[in-house]
Design a protein around this nucleic acid. Structure first.
Lengths: 214, 214, 214, 214
DNA sequence: TATGAATGAGTTTTCATTCAT
DNA sequence: GATGAATGAAAACTCATTCAT
């Protein structure tokens, strides 16, 4: 019924940071489909994802969807690419990964998660949908693991720096601490995704910060 | 063809802790269906959950499934009940919620999560499937929130006790610390569910313990 | 629109001579589908064969067709079985394969083909549709080859008998003659299937008979 | 992208024997499409003939196919024209329809069929696909009947000549004998098309020849 | 001429659900 | 209780055809 004009504005954004094969779209219509699928996954989950809805939301016929993507699964792969890129690209406005003291960088991570929770809730939902899908999709599992490993490595480095600069407790085990921080951020994100604003995010971060610093 | 006489095996087991309406099953066949659905959700996710597979796994006809449950959704509600009960009931063999020093109780929680991760992976997967479903199901959201609130309250109590007994840091903010602990446990569970044994669970718990105690 | 009540009357017929695995149908509805498909192949060819038409002709829903047959191709396999059996079973009322002099047996073959041409035109059309399909279906090819080999062997035996009994030319090459007879019968069947009654079938048979006898 | 300049290769070839309206192609691209369709019919049958495949095989877009042919059926008509012409044009290198003794002419026909079987198997397959299509296409039926009638007439003439020249049996019924010969050639062609080299073609022809000559 | 993009109308197949027994 | 049989509605995907350029 309702014709939805293809979402505008994120196009150029999707062309940068194309670290992955499928990430750029030579075609605007293709991106429209990916975005439509992305939003529908966030809204209804994979369980209720229907090609007809995707096509309608992208403002085109279902046959045209299949002109751009061989199959539903194929389109979903592109959504994964898109999300992967978003995850690397989208941060707090203030975000700068390699600037500031170790403590500032940890704070930046906290702020970033908080930003996504507030401004990019869809991203978090889709990401969590993918985590569950990864249970039955080894390729996807590998990709998500890659993201996690990067994150772990980053935290370890920062924590190491902080310990050496005397900012953090001397007895920190950087690897274990990084695991704790990541688990904490994942877990709190997960909770707040489902029932928003039920946990005092800032307070919890502050608490953790005090634990790190002594 | 094959007549199945109502067995009584796990029946009594399923009747305890019936804090919720649907939790008891007047019939073994009903429970078979719930268990079949539960396992299939763990194996394939809601996305691939089919009534025909549930019925087949429970060893009965699809028509009979609808004799016991008005609809697929109805059966899923019973799975939620079953899981809810499992969550309250199933613990480490060693588990005892109200015994031991505060530190021992925290350790017990860690051990319990670890036990579930190892022995009850299905439970964790189904629980996470439900978390995502809760996004579109307010009633489910409320129930899950209830579980979380209980957990939060328990941790706060234990932490308070620990602080007063001088076991934990004096400057702990019990509410924030409880949130951190819960987020940590959720997050690490989530990670290990998807890619098992990639994080040193024990190490991370030990680190957290040191942070709590000073 | 129009509900077609399942064709009647050939049921018992299909239960005899079950030399092939799938040939008997425990279920009447299954046979209805096979017959419907059989008739539609004869009327429109495989090119225009649609499951919806088959189901409609069998007087049931398309979903029910898939209750009995996993796929369209699966149903077609059953049509092949049915036709195979028909080919072995259906003959001139007078037909008796192992009675009479060799010449009478040859005449019986001619009569039999003529009977099919007149009374079982559908059978011939479907058979020819299958011959073309066999070009891309090795299993089918093997089955059809089997029928042909039986026929060839039968003709060779009869011709040999006739030569020894002095009924046929002494210089007949039984194998070659059998090939000629079969090719002739196939070819004339083929022609008459497409444009009926344009060739004097009886006259041609008589001519061949004279050639055989000297 | 790729510009194809109108080549002239087989063009003149396709313009001869244009006894039918559509037989000449003002355009090489048109012929490419006809040839592509022709090959695909031989390979997959009408059942699996798809315009997209035809266009791809002809090296052009599907939209361009519709520039040259109003519809798929229209293109198929041109394939019929092409095949018709091929049938009249393509023969054994040795072939000469109106030269030699009657027996030599019969032998020439045998050789010609054998040649097509070996070198032009596609032609035979497409021809048989058309025979089945003719069942539902009266116009096509008429055209194929025309070819058959020509053949029948030719054989009758040759046989008559042979009888008068004392080469063939005196008691031959030319019309019936011609029918037998044509049916034989159609039938053996049909068999050998489906399972090649399973019948001794030469032996069968020799046998028939002996029957004709006494 | 040529094509990328688009689509209406189908095509097979699937699914939760119902019904007669 | 239990099931074989049945189905409407929908699912993904296909196909010949058209349109704008």
């Amino acid at each position: 019924m309702k014709k939805i004009t293809p979402a505008e504005g994120m196009h150029s954004e999707t062309e940068m940071n194309a670290s992955h094969a499928h990430v750029t779209y030579d075609n605007r219509r293709q991106l429209d489909l990916v975005l439509a699928a992305y939003h529908l996954i966030a809204e209804r989950g994979f369980e209720q994802l229907r090609t007809r809805d995707i096509a309608a939301r992208a403002g085109m016929s279902i046959a045209n969807l299949h002109y751009y993507f061989a199959s539903k699964e194929d389109l979903i792969h592109s959504v994964v690419d898109y999300l992967h890129q978003q995850f690397v690209t989208v941060h707090t406005p203030a975000f700068n990964m390699s600037t500031g003291t170790p403590l500032e960088q940890i704070r930046m991570q906290f702020a970033d998660v908080q930003f996504r929770l507030r401004e990019k809730r869809e991203m978090i939902i889709v990401m969590n949908e993918l985590y569950l899908r990864a249970l039955r999709d080894p390729a996807l599992q590998t990709r998500l693991k890659g993201l996690d490993d990067q994150w772990q490595h980053y935290f370890e480095t920062v924590l190491n720096d902080g310990i050496q600069q005397g900012m953090f407790r001397k007895d920190l085990n950087p690897r274990a601490a990084a695991s704790v921080l990541i688990a904490f951020l994942k877990g709190i994100t997960y909770s707040l995704m489902v029932y928003p604003a039920t946990v005092n995010f800032v307070e919890a971060c502050a608490e953790l910060e005090r634990w790190l610093t002594g």
